[in-house]
Amino acid sequence: MARRYLLEFEKPLVELEKQIEQIRELARDSEVDVSQQLLQLETLAAKRREEIFAALTPAQKIQVARHPHRPSTLDYIQMFCDDWIELHGDRSGSDDQALIGGVGRIGERSVLLIGHQKGRDTKENVARNFGMATPGGYRKALRLMDHADRFRLPIITLIDTPGAYAGLLAEEQGQGEAIAVNLREMFRLRVPIIATVIGEGGSGGALGIGVADRLLMFQHSVYTVASPEACASILWRDAAKAPEAAAALKITGQDLLTLGVVDEVLPEPAGGNNWAPLKAGEVLRKAIENHLDQLTSLPISKLRQQRYKKFRAMGRVLEQKNSGEGITA
């Protein structure tokens, strides 16, 4: 097995993994039976890993969510789409590589898939702009969603972005407008929409493909209104306070389930989805099929009504009436 890319808090596992590797090498060169020791060490390592991952702080979850080997949009598509054809272009002069889409089949269903795409290494990341989409990307996404609407294809979106691209050209081309129009138009669409935060959901850049009938999140994914780094430097006036900000902002699946933002949190193996990508693909495919089963049976008007109501209920305000105080969700 290739050397794993270990995160800071996984360092306690380094020693164990080293020992395991040494014993393996030993076994390769000699006739000694080491299976018993190996099993013991591997069990121990698995247990430690489970302990570590059961107690991740929000700041650590961000690291898992940004792990370079975490399965990406194209990985998932490859894992669970039987047919897949990527479709390019916003029809206005650009084809964003950070936000991709196409048609494919999941089980018996034809679907439209859209997702942010990060790169695995620096070179890929430059080509993919680190998963930060331009206005053209959001307009391509909308063009494809309109296509899905015309041909009644359910829409699956996979969210994995640090945020929408902040640059001169992006402003010139109307980054705000592009995202805004997507938010509005996604309420209009007559097909089921399922959005899943597979990695990091960065603010408006995530929401731009995130208005959905169901919002799912993986266990170690995060969804933020502002990056904890930016939040810390604004509110704490100290970027080093990012871990505190990460905790205060309530960015984990569990937190967002409680706040009524997320519908389901998908489990990950100890070590995160990068540890068992095939398993992650299986979990996500099952969840998508399950939700599609529920949604495709709904009449269009009901579907759109429910989508509206879902977002309509978000937020917490205090409503002071003559008869006292009450909290509306």
């Binding site: 938010l183 509005r184 408006g204 933020t224 309530k250 706040l259 978000m314």
Partner: peptide, 26 residues
């Protein structure tokens, strides 16, 4: 922009208002 102190609930107001505007437009 967003009110960070209300976290994701703040972000979701963008969607909520846009949804209402879709109906006004319709």
């Amino acid at each position: 922009g967003a009110r960070m102190q209300e976290g994701m609930l703040s972000l979701m107001q963008m969607a909520k208002i846009s949804g209402a505007l879709e109906r006004h437009r319709e």
